[in-house]
Every structure is written in C-alpha cells, then in structure tokens.
C-alpha cells in the first residue's frame, strides 16, 4: 500500500517537474527568439531543414488526401444528387480540419522527430554543455532558431497542404468523375468564408506549429543523454505531439465552430 502511494507520488512529482521544466524552457526560448532576429542566417538554415525538407511529403500527402476526399465525397454526394457541392466538401474539410491537423501530424513525424534526435544527440555528445563552457547560450544559438523555424513553417505547410488538396480534389472530381468545373469552384467560394474558415484554419496551424516545435525541442533538450534516452525522447515527441494536436484540435474546433 505504502509502496503504491510512493509510486503514485513519484509519478506525479516527476510529471509535474517535467511540466515545469517545459514551461521554463519555453520562456527561455521565447526570450531567445529576440536574439535570433539579429542573426537571420541561423533562421534560414533551420527553415531549410524544417520547412523545405518537409515540403515534399506535405505536398504529396496533400495531393493524395485531396484526391481521396474527391472520390469518397463524390460517391456519398451522388446518392443525394448533390455532386456539385463536392468542392465545398473537399475544401471545407481540408481548410478547417485536415489541412492543419494532417500537416501537423506529418510535420511532427518528419521535422519534430528530427529536431528531437538532433538536440538529444547534441546533449548526449555534450555539445550543448561545451557551448555553455564557451559562454554561448545553447538556447539562444541552437534552440530558438529551430523553434522559430518550426513556428513559421507550420502555417505555410498547412496552407500548401490545403491548397494542393483542393487541386487534387478537383483533378479527381472534375477530371475523372465529371463534376462541373464552374460548380466545383463557385459553390466552394460561396460557401467558405474567409474569416470563419480560412483564418481559423491558419490559427489552428499556428497553434500546432508552436506546440509541436515546443514538444520536439523540449523532449530533445530534456532527454537522458544516452542513445536509449534519445530514442525514447524521439518516440515521445511523435506520440505526445499526435495526442496534443488531436486534443487541441478538438478544443479549437469547439471554440471556433461550436456556436454555429
């Protein structure tokens, strides 16, 4: 009994401690961003490895998700004789939900895990403490540019995902299944609202970018500096990011679209 209580207390304290370290880490990083702005070269390099290298997977997935939505949507909508609203269905589901969420999940898998492994290995090989010895703040030099890069590229990647997805849906819907091209676009334009749909989708992707970058960098920074610790941290990044993205997506959706 006492053992159980002790275990419980230990688990609580460990997770609370981690949460607290995470917050301090975030505050340090946010402060460190100011110094990144005076060194844009560091940021470009990270934008390349975080954003550009995720570009391909995001655009190909976007294309396929859009094409699948086109196919599935057509079969369901044709039951009601409402094939013309295919554009609305594809665009609304992409812009509101799938764009930000799937892009963020892919981003966590592609860029987040890489960030964790990179930072974790830097810690394991004592590069970070080496920097501290040379009076260079690793948070400012290493973490903050990566955080800013992730935060900036996520909305762009989500927008690309949605835009390419809509074109993919049009390829299938208009090109293959014979939905009218004008109806596809005009129904979409008259139904989707800039404020309610597009801006809310962008807000979602900004939040996801923030959270995924934070989790990925913190897990790397907080990893146990052994090869096993790094591998565990990488797994935790992907798992925790996925949970957080999906949970936050529900909360954001409830806040944004709940009152309709």
């Amino acid at each position: 009994m006492i053992d159980f209580l002790q275990k419980l207390g230990q688990t609580t304290l460990t997770s609370l401690g981690k949460l607290g370290r995470g917050y301090f880490f975030l505050i340090h990083t946010l402060v460190g961003i100011i110094s990144v702005l005076s060194r844009p070269r560091l940021l470009t390099k990270q934008l390349y490895s975080v954003g550009v290298l995720s570009f391909l997977i995001i655009s190909i997935s976007g294309l396929f998700v859009g094409m699948v939505l086109g196919l599935q949507g057509f079969y369901i909508l044709s039951d009601f004789g409402a094939e013309e609203t295919l554009g609305v269905m594809v665009a609304a589901s992409l812009v509101r939900e799938l764009g930000p969420v799937v892009a963020a999940l892919l981003f966590a898998g592609r860029a987040g895990s890489a960030l964790t492994a990179e930072i974790g290995l830097m810690k394991a090989t004592e590069q970070l403490s080496g920097m501290e010895m040379m009076a260079i703040d690793p948070i400012k030099r290493i973490i903050a540019p990566r955080f800013l890069a992730g935060f900036l590229s996520m909305p762009l990647l989500a927008a690309l995902f949605s835009a390419i997805g809509v074109i993919g849906g049009q390829l299938i819907g208009v090109g293959l299944l014979g939905v009218d091209d004008g109806a596809y676009w005009s129904q979409m334009q008259s139904t989707l609202d800039f404020q309610d749909d597009i801006i809310n989708g962008i807000i979602k992707s900004i939040v996801f970018g923030f959270v995924v970058s934070w989790i990925a960098l913190f897990e790397g920074y907080d990893a146990i500096p052994t090869s096993e610790g790094v591998s565990r941290a990488t797994t935790r990044t992907v798992v925790n990011s996925a949970f957080t993205i999906l949970g936050l997506d529900f909360i954001l959706t409830a806040l944004m679209f709940g009152d309709i």
Binding site: L47, G51, V52, L156, S162, A163, Q189
Partner: peptide
Amino acid sequence: FVACGIAALFFMAMQISN
C-alpha cells in the same frame, strides 16, 4: 518554400473563400 507557402495562403484566400 516561403514564396510557395505565401502563394498557397493567397490561393486559399482568393480562390477557395468568398
């Protein structure tokens, strides 16, 4: 990459929404 991303945002604003 940044240009493509901004182009996609612009595309969404102009082509997809009202």
